[in-house]
Write a protein that binds this DNA or RNA. Structure first.
Lengths: 222, 222
DNA sequence: ATACCGTATTTCGTATACGAAATACTGATT
DNA sequence: AATCAGTATTTCGTATACGAAATACGGTAT
């Protein structure tokens, strides 16, 4: 019997809702977040909205405009470049560690995540695709056992989602991505450390290189 | 003429004060943060304290205990290991990029930072040492031009500071660290990319390896 | 027509109030 | 002495109030 799970506070719920709205471009880059309106929409007082916005600020999803509140941060090509530079460095490393550190049920988990991705491709569901893509990578970060990577990639994926929300991508183009995911996982389970890491490096480089404009033409998150 | 710099809000100031109190072990791991007491001490209402704590929560410097508020997070050996694992991966990378991306005044800045470090060694001032150490590494992160590394290492250094605050280290032992810093900078300015990166790798590995217990016997942050 | 000034309105930071939930304390029972 | 139940107190999440600062608007002067 587990402990009763504490409910999320209104601050936490508000934060989640705002993150999602920003990352799906419901709130556009540069758009002002009006606390009264948000509070009215969510049917809460302004105070939890104000607190949630303070957290968003610390995560740079929104930025200050002085006394007149915050705007959604602009999509920053420098940040995007940094994220992909970083991913090319860090994710092959997570692959290497994941091979040795993955838990006993890793094969089952991997199968589920891959199936979910292939299913999203078949359904042509862009939102599910992005979620599955993120799940795939987060699975590997988790297996790597490195808490710093897990934490830093959590916020990085929010920025990736934002960039992806700016374009209408063709889900059909996502097919090869999931083949690449399969190949990475196969190499990992075959304990081919170098091959798996190289496949991941190529995978991420390809995602970035196929981007005709660093932010607005993003074809794939990964 | 620059824009008038907006003042920090009470939430921001409170957050800064709390971070410092946690990172210098004024608030001990496991200790409850009482909002009323903190508000009274800082002579503000509870609301900005509550908001500041919400941000600390999202950064994992404090954790929830249900309805009775938050406690300062325990020093987690896994997190510490992750941080050093991560640093050994990421900081040589920042060194390599810094060589090409450093600004025109980099040599002057480096000199200032190194002088500050040597001065803190001579003064035997542990707190200044830790600050200078952090400044040294942040200088290189900044030169590398990678925003993700800069952001993630900001919170990581808070955790490093916490671990350091648990022990009374001998400042005299910090001397060789600054010699290592000098060597790294010299290799960078000589554009010896491989050598600089390797020196940084060794430097960080040495800092971690000299730690008899992953958290409590930390001799050096770097 | 444009610029300026005064007033009204909006918005947000923060203080205060309220009530729910958790914890501490006390007295009664076994 | 140990346990339980009831009550009091503490603490925090959130709503509401207040006031400062920013912005919008309307009228007047040039």
């Amino acid at each position: 019997m587990d402990a009763i799970k504490p409910k999320k506070t209104l601050v936490e719920e508000t934060y989640d809702i705002l993150v999602d709205a920003i990352c799906t471009s419901e709130f556009r880059p540069g758009e002002r977040l009006n606390q009264d309106e948000i509070a009215a929409r969510l049917k809460v007082s302004r105070q939890p909205v104000n607190s949630a916005i303070a957290i968003l600020k610390s995560e740079k999803l929104v930025e200050d405009t002085g006394r007149r509140g915050v705007v959604v941060s602009a999509l920053d090509p420098d940040l995007f470049r940094s994220i992909y530079e970083y991913r090319q460095l860090v994710e092959p490393f997570t692959v290497r560690f994941a091979i040795d550190r993955k838990p006993a049920d890793a094969a089952r988990t991997a199968r589920e995540v891959l199936d979910r991705g292939h299913h999203a491709v078949a359904e042509g569901d862009m939102r599910a695709l992005l979620g599955a893509d993120r799940d795939f990578h987060e699975m590997i970060y988790g297996w790597s056992g490195n808490l710093v990577v897990q934490n830093s990639m959590r916020t990085n994926w929010n920025h990736i989602r934002r960039a992806m929300a700016e374009v209408l991508s063709d889900p059909a183009k996502a097919g090869p991505i999931w083949d690449e995911h399969e190949a990475i996982v196969n190499a990992m389970f075959a304990r081919q450390s170098d091959r798996a890491a190289e496949l991941m490096t190529q995978h991420i480089r390809l995602a970035y290189d196929q981007n005709p404009s660093p932010v607005f033409g993003v074809a794939e998150a990964s």
